[in-house]
Amino acid sequence: EERNVLELIETVKARISLLPSFGLDIGEGSVSLSNVNESDWANEWKKYYKPTKVGKKIVVKPSWEDYEKQEGDLIIELDPGMAFGTGTHETTSMCIRELENYVDETKTVFDIGCGSGILAIAAAELGAKEVVAGDLDEVAVKVSKENCEINHVSDKVVVKHGSLFEVVDSKADVIVANIIADIIKILAKDVSKFLKEDGVFISSGIILAKIDQVCEALEENGFEIVKVERLGEWSAIVSKLK
């Protein structure tokens, strides 16, 4: 409402009128305007966020939904707020499935770029003895801490603001990073310094076209590729120190 919407619409109309010059059929090419109450869009998405079984054990459930627990279920109650990570995105679900494969009560886990805290919470629910999560975004740190409290894992999960490698001085058995391919390629240079012997690095947020680039970066920095998972347009790569 604070923007000059009418001026913006005229700009849009002018741009649309140029599209036929590119050989595109724009049909009627009309532009319409309507008002949407803030409360509507702020809550409308909640209708589509339902309890979801992400892996063999982990179930992600919004706080406003009921879910009847099945035998073996580990339930994460999650309100993502303004941070990424509801558990339904392919990259998040692949990471959770791999955490199920590698995390037990003997493992320390680092979560790089924790978003809503979902992966850190999943690791804690799977029994990890210690979890450290970090994010450069202060909102993500706040949301992660809140979600840890909701799920009663604050005693096991430490959430820190900043680059995780700058705020930890120990090593992990498992490091998980659900970010983007280009950042993972950069992380590959330093991850090994923070992994124990035989440590596992689970990385995701990688579009299919960049799988080879990420694998190459990992191998150049002392990792062997254990598994490449694909789901939709995304992939997750599990690697171990050679």
Rank of each mutant, 00 (worst) to 15 (best):
K53I: 01
R15Y: 09
Y49R: 14
G55K: 06
G27N: 03
N43Q: 14
R15A: 10
S17T: 04
S30V: 15
K50C: 14
N43A: 13
S30P: 08
W41D: 00
I16P: 03
N37E: 02
G29N: 12
K46E: 15
K47N: 11
L24P: 09
A42H: 08
G27F: 09
F22G: 05
Y48F: 15
Y49M: 15
K53G: 03
V36T: 11
Y48S: 14
N35F: 03
V54G: 01
P20E: 05
E44W: 13
S34E: 00
S39C: 12
L33S: 02
L18N: 10
N43C: 12
V36M: 12
W45I: 13
G55P: 02
D40R: 03
G27C: 07
L24M: 08
F22T: 07
R15S: 04
I16L: 08
L24R: 11
N43W: 08
S34L: 03
P20H: 06
K46L: 11
Y48D: 15
S17G: 00
V31F: 05
E28I: 05
L24H: 05
W41Q: 07
A14I: 10
P20D: 07
N37L: 04
A42G: 09
Y49C: 10
L19A: 01
T52H: 05
G55I: 04
K47H: 11
S34H: 05
F22Y: 08
V54D: 01
E38Q: 01
W45T: 09
K13Q: 13
S21F: 12
I26K: 02
V54W: 05
I26D: 00
N43H: 15
P20T: 06
P20N: 05
S21L: 11
V36K: 04
S17C: 05
W45A: 09
S32G: 02
W41G: 02
A14C: 09
I16E: 02
A14D: 09
L33V: 10
V54C: 03
W41I: 14
A42V: 10
E38C: 00
S34K: 00
E28F: 09
E44P: 04
A42Q: 09
Y49K: 11
K46N: 13
D25W: 02
W41R: 08
S21I: 10
D25Y: 05
E28A: 07
S39I: 13
F22Q: 06
T52C: 06
P51D: 12
K13G: 10
L19R: 15
I26A: 00
V36R: 04
N35Q: 06
L18F: 12
A42N: 09
